[in-house]
Simulated scan of single mutants.
Amino acid sequence: MSKRQQLPPQIRKVEVKDRASGKTVVRYQVTVDAGISPETGKRKQTRKRFTTEKDARDYLSTTQAAVAAGTYVARSKRTVRQVIDEWLASKHNLKPSTVLGHKSKLSAVKDELGEVEVQKLTKGHLDDLVKRLRAGEVEGRSAWSPRSVNYMLSILTSALESECKQGNVVRNVAALVERVDESGRAEMKTLTEDEMFRILDHECRDRHLWTLALYGLRRGEIAGLKWSSVDLSAGTVTVEENRVVVERQVLTGTPKSRKSRRILPMPTEVVDVLKAARKRQLEDRLAAGSQYGSGEYVASNQLGEPLHPDAITSRWEKLLRDLGIPAVRLHDARHSCATLMHLRGVPIAVIAAWLGHASAAFTMATYAHSQDDALKAAASSFGRVVTTRDTETGVT
């Protein structure tokens, strides 16, 4: 008969009272050195009891191997709420509007799963949350779109990835959740060339705003454009400020990305429209007197106060109704500009720079819908008789 092995120093027998029977029983208590705590700088130890010596030895062996490999995760009661709050607090370089957007989407996770210990968070928890968000079954929230769900999953994945790197969780369960198919999203609608020029030629108080939109500026860029960024003599518009609505708050900051900061040379007709708007606002100042605001924004009301971005959208919708043009989003005016430039032969790289896109590849993917018409135009060049109309690009 083999001699019984002596217990290693990390395992010792202890006598405890069994809760069910009330009798004294023997347990095997394992104490393992789990490395140094990054928070305190002190040695960490993990302690656990087992009913059998074999289970205790197996646990000791597995744990020591994980500690040596740097993959051991100590038991923690940190909650999902704590993890999200700490991750958001660590995002020092994000724009306030981006942080607010992150907080808004992650608030659903905190409300529903905030008290769950992050080490006990499962894929099932998140699958169930996604299902209920999509169905509008989460109290106080309307049904979420695929895009909103995927946005939430993306930033939650980033937060849990940080936990993995810090050694606080074994795996990133958010990365395991299947993303919702966004292929059913409505395609962007673009204005026809005739509709674009009807808007550009329409005399109204906000004509300069629609001109800027049809020449490729985002709503936030229009709302954030100051007269100090408009050089009427040189005919340029410098995009350097953004006013956006996040969670019903108007936030002013830098443009969407580094490439969004740009100086755009404007055609003479655009400069003329801006000059007329500037003159009208100066007349408003004289009429309002001391009640007039700063008047520093290009998009201002008659009292010199900056227009709320949502007010710009409302005015756009009224304009289309007045002109009898089918409803399209204000942002689609920007898409219309890019599509027209594309169909007229302007290189994608130039369109990307004009629109302030991060890359030409994104621009190509966004405006792929205009490829069909562009290819048809190119096909005509193979005919035996090539007319001036076939080859004219009309680039301005």
Rank of each mutant, 00 (worst) to 15 (best):
D310I: 13
A333V: 06
A368H: 12
K131V: 01
L282D: 13
L214S: 07
R207I: 09
R384C: 14
V116L: 05
A360E: 02
K17N: 12
R78P: 05
L225V: 08
V386N: 14
A361W: 08
K105V: 13
A20W: 08
R49N: 15
H342Q: 15
S370V: 12
P38H: 00
T339M: 07
V26W: 14
Y59I: 11
R219I: 10
V99E: 10
V169T: 01
A365Q: 13
P146I: 04
S104G: 12
A277K: 01
D128S: 12
Q82N: 10
W227P: 15
L176D: 09
G253C: 10
G140I: 01
T313F: 06
K165I: 04
L330H: 04
I263S: 06
D231V: 05
E139H: 12
R141M: 05
L133V: 07
I312T: 03
A288E: 09
G383H: 15
V118E: 00
G41W: 00
K259D: 09
V118S: 03
A135P: 01
L176V: 03
E86P: 03
T51V: 14
E241Y: 02
S97F: 08
K42L: 10
K279Q: 13
H125T: 00
P8W: 02
R12I: 06
K165H: 01
D231T: 03
L303C: 13
A234D: 14
W210I: 09
E296Q: 14
S290V: 15
S257P: 07
L225S: 08
T252H: 01
G167Y: 03
I199N: 07
D127E: 10
E115I: 15
K13T: 05
A135Q: 12
A374E: 11
L7F: 02
S370K: 03
K23P: 00
E193W: 15
D33S: 06
T236R: 11
